[in-house]
């Protein structure tokens, strides 16, 4: 399936804009989403870490993505 993923902070620079399109296999997990991202944009491997939020919440690596999920790349946060 083809999904849209939003990006903030340095992730926005790495993917070249606020949104990227990813081709995922059906029942892809968050872990696989990270792998696809790192393959498409090797600079993700230079980050301290990055997480994926689904529908405005952090999700574990084994969460299975379903059609309609709102995916967002969360690079290391630095508020405050």
């Amino acid at each position: 399936m083809r999904v849209k993923i939003r990006a903030f902070g340095i992730a926005k620079e790495i993917v070249g804009g606020p949104v990227s399109q990813l081709d995922l296999k059906d029942k892809a997990t968050i872990s696989e989403v990270k792998d696809v991202l790192s393959l498409k944009y090797p600079d993700f491997s230079t980050l301290k870490k990055f997480s994926i939020a689904v529908n405005e919440s952090y999700q574990d690596d084994d969460y299975v993505v379903t059609e309609g999920d709102e995916l967002v790349i969360i690079p290391p946060v630095s508020g405050g």
Binding site: F8, Y58, V77
Partner: peptide
């Protein structure tokens, strides 16, 4: 609050 904010809240500083 401030310690947790710096770890969990999706805000980025440039």
């Amino acid at each position: 609050a401030i310690d947790t904010l710096k770890v969990t809240v999706p805000i980025w500083k440039r």
